[in-house]
Amino acid sequence: MGLYSEEIRNITDKSSKQLFEFAVADENNAEKIGYSNYSYWRSTWKSFLKNKVAVSLLILVIAIVLFVLIQPYLPNQKSPTEIYLDPETGYQARNVPPNEEFWFGTNSIGQDLWSRIWAGTRTSLFIGVVVAIVEAIIGITIGALWGYSRKLEAPLTHAYNVIENIPTTIVLILMSLILRPSITTIIVAMCITGWVEMARFIRNQIVILRDREYNLASRTLGTPSYRIILKNLLPYLISIIMLRMSLAVPYAIGAEVFLTYIGLGLPVSEPSLGNLINEGRVLMMSPDLRYQLLFPSIVLSVITISFYIIGNSFADAADPKNHV
């Protein structure tokens, strides 16, 4: 105290001019203070880049996706559905082990496994991505309404309890039986059950966030509801949404494998990872033929694990709490 008391006592002795200076209004400085160079996406991206494993897997996944898309147009590619004939016998080139001609060998009717695997990956990834996007759109919309609107709360909660408690298997099987076996059927069957989880997550988060002070302030200022949901709430949910979406892809691929296992998957003439693995399963006991199971399993494993790890690290990176 003693240190400053002298000074304070002497304040009156000094002229006010010595104590305060007039600040000159400076446009440039004003700009600097009002503007922060914090960008949500840039920070997210920055902290994501710190995770080396995830980045390399992301590159791998992008490479796979690109490769799967351009593979049919590369030179020397075979058709995934054409049956190749053995020039000696004139009949199908059955179960040819991997060689120069057929890089991954052929299956039991002489189709080229290399191109079938990429065609199958294309189909499965397509199913996975479409399911993830549809689930996200429906899930977020309904979840946001459910969490934010008090009128819709009760009916949606009841609907949720019903849908959540119908065993997923039943819906999957019934849908596949009632509709024709096709890609659309599989996507529809998975979306019918898939969005519920997403909606619940969004709803729970929104319930937590909606009564925070800043939202209350927003409301009292007359901000419309849709703006509050879009601008105030959703950005907080990005990390959860990203995580769930990236997990939805491998989940959908897995569900496709399961449906194929119980005999309701895509027709064999339509290559998919589920089909390839299911066909290869019987061959597990035969050392010579095991390559037919090995390659699709590896592709499936790589894709699954990549999405898991990328999803998790992206969720960490997207969490604003980790940005400081």
């Binding site: 494998v257 399963r281 597990m284 006991m285 499936l300 494993s301 790589v302 898991y308």
Partner: peptide, 18 residues
């Protein structure tokens, strides 16, 4: 954990059994 998540369960179940 990575192994269990990634490899299709129908594959390793069968391997274990046999």
């Amino acid at each position: 954990i990575v192994f269990i998540v990634a490899v299709p369960s129908m594959v390793y179940y069968l391997l274990i059994q046999v």
